[in-house]
């Protein structure tokens, strides 16, 4: 759940917030590509550090670090999976190379998480939906997308209320063996699902009552427009990406090694 907290949009007025969602999407994609391109620990650390100024200038460091902490379990899993697989396939030998590789794989995931959270923390879902609409994705999909995001907190509260109500009837969620514990959640899931269905019907009624589908082509209160800052960001991203590609194929990257 913590991971999702770290992906929840935080309203702000910084330069980063004001960038077009499409621009930010591109930047995140670039970081993503770079993280896949480089496997050396050294370059991944650089990639991580390079994000820090952006994150601090968007004033989202607190939420960002929460999302990273939330993904800690996954990071550990990735680290050990790599270690174990490498260890087994390497005739049960633990080399410093393997250790370094596993660490960089885990760290790479941190970089990916970080670029995701940078995007989601600074992009309002409304803007995102607008970006989708302007990319000619049918309005129904965009609407479904914003509605889903809008109702996440509502459903979270509802799930809590249901849990409270069932626990008040003596339901003990963490009692019994593994299978029993899963079964314990049935009394929570059924009201939650029934509630969601009822809610979606009410939503549909309310949409109908506000002339949904009255005209083939609807208009929009806002329209996204690329600004100068967006073009500058594009340019910088392009330069960084070309430079990185050049480095990747022409310049040896210094090796960092964890001693065993």
């Amino acid at each position: 759940m913590k991971v999702f907290e770290g992906l929840k949009f935080k309203r702000g007025t910084t330069v980063i917030h004001r960038l077009d969602p499409r621009t930010k999407f591109l930047v995140s994609c670039m970081i993503f590509t770079l993280a896949l391109l480089f496997t050396e620990l050294f370059s991944i650390i650089i990639l991580f550090i390079a994000q820090l100024p952006i994150i601090f200038s968007a004033r989202i460091h607190r939420e960002w670090s929460r999302s990273l902490r939330g993904s800690l379990t996954l990071v550990v899993i990735i680290l050990f999976t790599n270690l174990i697989v490498g260890y087994v396939s390497n005739n049960f030998q633990l080399t410093s190379q393997l250790l370094t590789y596993s660490i960089s794989m885990a760290f790479r995931f941190v970089v990916l998480m970080s670029s995701f959270s940078l995007f989601f923390l600074t992009t309002s879902p409304d803007d995102l939906s607008l970006a989708l609409e302007q990319s000619h994705i049918p309005y129904e999909f965009c609407f479904a997308f914003t509605t889903a995001i809008r109702f996440v907190p509502v459903l979270a509260i509802e799930a809590q209320t249901i849990m409270d109500a069932q626990r008040s009837r003596g339901l003990e969620l963490d009692k019994g063996n593994f299978l029993k514990r899963i079964r314990n959640y049935i009394p929570i899931l059924i009201p939650l699902i029934v509630g969601a269905i009822r809610r979606s019907l009410e939503l549909a009624e309310a949409m109908e009552s506000r002339a949904f589908g009255a005209k083939k082509k609807r208009t929009n209160l806002y329209r996204l427009q690329l600004k100068r800052s967006d073009y500058i960001t594009f340019l910088i991203s392009f330069i960084i990406l070309s430079l990185s590609l050049y480095i990747r194929y022409n310049i040896p990257i210094p090796e960092l090694q964890f001693p065993l």
């Binding site: 309002s124 879902p125 409304d126 509605t147 309310a206 506000r210 009255a214 609807r218 208009t219 209160l221």
Partner: peptide, 16 residues
């Protein structure tokens, strides 16, 4: 349905 009050009020008008 929307994520801001303003967008919500606009919803019906956009449909028109």
């Amino acid at each position: 349905f929307a994520l801001s009050v303003e967008k919500d009020i606009a919803f019906g008008l956009e449909n028109l």
